[in-house]
Amino acid sequence: MIRLIAWRELRSLFAMPSSWVVLAVLQFILAWFFLAQLQAFLDIQPQLAQLANPPGVTATIAATLCNTVALLLMMLVPMFTMRLIAEERRNQTLALLMSAPLSSRQIVLGKFLGLWAFLAMLIAATALMLYTLALGTHLDNGLLLSNLAGLLLLTASYVALGLYVSSLTNQPIIAAIGALAVLVGLWLADIGAAAENSPWHTLSPLNHFQNFNAGLLDSGDAAFFVLFTGFFLLLAMRRVHNNRIYG
């Protein structure tokens, strides 16, 4: 049942021209950025060679690109999550799910997994682009995989938050603005907090991505993403269930 809902979500995403446009534009921007980074790396390569322990091509190009993807996703994911529940409510299609033999858990998890799978494709396309570097040089696979794992976890947390905000309203646009406000708010609070031990650092998903970005697999960061995602998914299930009580 969860798979069925996820499949339906993917099906709808691919049936809409807007998702294709977003995918294409994003891929274009990332390719542009990727080539610019590559150019910059080639330009400074001679100077780097004189250093004792120079940063490699993966650290200079791939890690920087993944950091950009993480930032772009923060703006992009709310555009996708806004539809998840708010639009079903506005188009009154939620009644179909509510009158079907499904629990709120299945509805929320199905939608979450569907969109996550879609965004994973987007990340996979970025990964493919980075792996074209392997044609000309040796890549640091560990750093690359840690970055991709971090991106997947980060996306999961964004999607969960967006899904919850979407379950609060029946206006997709409000859901988008709400989710964007929370995500950008967390990010700004994180980079604005000067103190090293400020609690804002621990709350921001993007801050927890930094270790993954540097190639450091920290179970604390992974646990943060899992908890963050789980927390908002639970809230969303609660909200979908309450739909039956408050109408």
Binding site: R11, S12, Q92, T93, A95
Partner: peptide, 10 residues
């Protein structure tokens, strides 16, 4: 329901 619950893009 009153409004048919249709996914218009399918």
């Amino acid at each position: 329901p009153e409004t048919p619950p249709l996914y218009r893009e399918l």
